[in-house]
Write a protein that binds this DNA or RNA. Sequence first.
DNA 1: GGTTTAACCGACCAATGGGTCTTATAGATA
DNA 2: TATCTATAAGACCCATTGGTCGGTTAAACC
Lengths: 206, 206
Amino acid sequence: MEKTLKRMATMQRMQVKGLELFYKNGYYNTSVDDILTELSLSKGAFYYHFDSKEDFFIQIIENLLARKMYSMLIEPIEGHENPLDLITQCFEDALETAVHNELDFGFVLSNFINEFNGRNENIMKHLNDILKIWEVNLVSAVQRGKFNGYIDRHVDSEGVAVFLMSAYIGVRTLMVETSPSARKYRFMSQLRNYFKSMEPKRNEVI
Amino acid sequence: MEKTLKRMATMQRMQVKGLELFYKNGYYNTSVDDILTELSLSKGAFYYHFDSKEDFFIQIIENLLARKMYSMLIEPIEGHENPLDLITQCFEDALETAVHNELDFGFVLSNFINEFNGRNENIMKHLNDILKIWEVNLVSAVQRGKFNGYIDRHVDSEGVAVFLMSAYIGVRTLMVETSPSARKYRFMSQLRNYFKSMEPKRNEVI
DNA sequence: GGTTTAACCGACCAATGGGTCTTATAGATA
DNA sequence: TATCTATAAGACCCATTGGTCGGTTAAACC
């Protein structure tokens, strides 16, 4: 194994385990030693690869969190079909994953936003970047839908994006404790109602 | 000042400051000393009045958090007018308060739910109780609306409740960092669209 | 075969955490 | 005035934290 490969493998192991524990227990409530113990690694190894706990976490955001967000919530809505269908299916899949997750602690991104808001500006900047990318992609999906005649042209694209992000973040919080499956079902049903209200208005029913 | 009154006054001071700091920095990231320092009180005083940090927090939930929730999000929708109007106005007011809050760290209840989920079952129970009360009140508001002819009778009351809670929790998270006022405006506008879709369907336009 | 060095070990440190315990004080009571 | 008691002070305890530092090992290179 080449040196640089071994290095990357160890860093990757640390980051994956780090995200797992940070997600589960929160950043401030997870010690570096907690992570190292589970990996049978030492302090020396950690501080050889990372400058600090904060540096470590930022690399986790860039390497794991951002990509996960992209593959789960952004890439699936990039097609040219009806965006309302794409978003519905995307949320359906993402929530289904959450339902089947044995240990669900909510929407990773929003959990961290809650934890760091007002406490660590640096980390918040990175988290907000991801949020912004999500928002931008939702907005352009809606705009595409208007252009392609799937969505009424009077619909406010940015408003829809904010509303969708809100609803998703919120339902993920609600799903963590009480009957996630039932809540998912109700949520998706209401989402479809909401989407129906923005289908193109025909001039008159023929 | 009577003894029992002095006792209650001190406890109240501690709880108010405690909620303030727990909300701002999180529970695990706020030490008992942080609270006592700001009040110029000592460890002795704290543990004279409370059994533990956890006991302290639970009393905060019961005495302050539950009441705040009630006055802001539950009581305002209890009237017999059109529930869609009541809820709209209620959210409008609650979000406006958040906008004007210099230091906004999101929706108090959902922040704590995020922090304690999977970490402290006891505290989670108390937080979920509040959530449940909110949900029940939303459901019965919608049912009242159906009964009184403000809402179409095919509407799923529980679904609407889940969707509304989700949206509110989410938008409060989104408002903490980026242009809260603009996001509030867009959110409320979409909420009204959503509500429009559940007005009673007349048999036919006359 | 000897030397260098990337990768890792683990003892150690100062600060901080929740919580305990003995002691002080001030106002009520007798 | 003397005593009692509710309230509070703050020194102390011990576990844990992020971080440092000198040392070890094994592979790569000359």
